[in-house]
Design a protein around this nucleic acid. Sequence first.
DNA 1: TTGTTCTAATATTCTTTGAGCATG
DNA 2: CCATGCTCTTTGAATATTAGAACA
Length: 586
Amino acid sequence: IVTPRDRMVRLATHKWTVLSLIAHTRARNAMINDESLRDRLYGLVPNAYLEKLRMIHKKKIPLQTERVRLFEIFLEDLTEWWRDLLKEITLFGIGNSTKPTYMRLADVQHRTRSSQDMLSYVEKMSGSREDNAQLFAALCRSLGIPARLVISIQCPGWTASPSSTKSNAVANSNETPAKIDENDYRGEKWRGLDKPLEVKYQPKLRAIKAKPLKPTEVAAEEADAEPIDTQSPPTMWVEVFSKPWQKWITVDPIRGIVTPTGNRRMEPSNSDKSNRLVYVLAFEEDGHARDVTARYTRTLYSRISRMRPPSTKKGGEETDWWSRVVASVQRQERFARDFEEDEEMQTAASREPMPSSVAAFKDHPVYALEKHLKRDEVIFPAKQAGTFQGTPVFLRANVIACRSSRQWYNEGRVINEGEDALKWVKSRGYTLANKRAEEEARQQGMDGLQEGLYAPFQTEVYTAPPVVDGKIPTNAFGNVDLFVDSMLPPGGVHIPYNGAGKVAKKLEIPYAEAVVGFEFRKHRGMPKIKGIVVAEEYGETVTEAFLEYEEEAAAKDAKRKKEQALKAKRKEINAVKIKARLQRDY
DNA sequence: TTGTTCTAATATTCTTTGAGCATG
DNA sequence: CCATGCTCTTTGAATATTAGAACA
């Protein structure tokens, strides 16, 4: 059972973990730029390799494809050599295997505080998988090859973990719900509880089986920790920029994988609980990072993006947490290679296979099913993109949000003449007047009023009837609809001050009140009036007169207040005087 | 087991033109 | 007497989202 508060805590925990790990990686990424560390690494590289690298140059090898090939071979050789060099691998976080990776913290002697610690890993020729990746990135940078430190951020899920909380939650039944607080934000069941439900942590304990190590596995330092499979996908790796090819090459120095194309070899299996690919960030030498998740998964839209916090709509503006995070670590301007990379990842993502479950189609950014359409949504044009379980699949790009003619009018648009509604839906009567109309219709045998919905392309900007001879054309209520600026009648001007009407009246200038929106209460809509509309030629006069009036009123008000204060003071003084006299006389 | 769908509960959205009274 | 401005209240059903159970 999860309360909204729990949900909030989970989301916050998730976000904090992600941000912390970004900060961590950023620090490490800066650490490996240390000169002495780089010099040390550079010194390790055999001359033959340096020579090979120098050979890959336009002047020496004019053919580009050849240079591309040579660079790849060089990188493979370098990785192979590196793998032989750094043999020992220790577990990054040493801890209990029942905890997921993000819960493991390195103990004190394994903590990396500075580039000096990193240097010591080089001297000892040992380190964790993550250290290894970091050092490899440093090595590439020392050779003058642009290299990125890539992290797959490991974080707790923000959704409820099913069954883990349910059975363990025990209500304090012997405690009588004390006072019921009227302002208690919680639901019926939770109201009155003065402390959170007690949740007993009951870890599932398993006997440790001393399994023989697989050839690819390495024993962890702690006896009860699970062995590390060095052939499993890492959480940190390197991307190396191939100058001849102008593209990033993925390198996992531990597994010795060098792959020039986007691939899934970094994606852990679905069932892997300790390694989940959700966010992948690539840190460049200058400290900026890019979101490269799309390169490493084939289920970005249908699976991965659902593991991220949902975007929230605040005041009609949609904000996505992860996009904001990415924007904050990204370089402000994009280089040519960045544009190319974005395009490449975009195509990779668009080639993502169709979801394999109905649920994954919901809110999918590429595909859409008819059953998931919202009330006001229409598929247009209804071009089928495929079939899923016997029902047609459409493209999300063809899903249009429609509006009724009233809703369009509220945005200052009207339906083009002769347009037919794309969709008819049951009208929702909210106001008493609407309810009554609906009731009447039902009595006449018609069931439910329908209202037509129209797409944006079926509408045009509304033009109000123009001002003629200083007269403002009004609606049935004697005022002007001014929901957006474009609804201002031609030849008119909006004076957005309440009270301007009074002034205009005194000046005998024709005017109409401007309705800028509505307010709702008790099943009734109330117009929000803000100022007036007058003919252009009177605009200045009225504004000036109004400002003058305002000033006068303010002065009057100040005077009145002053008088009142004086009066009160006089009264007070009198009271004191009377009191004194009373005390003296009696 | 595990991923998916169903279902109930909770949260959010949508609506679009008064009335009564005190004051000056 | 009238015009003006202030205050009153903040509904409720449909739709969307979510958690947790049932299901395959």
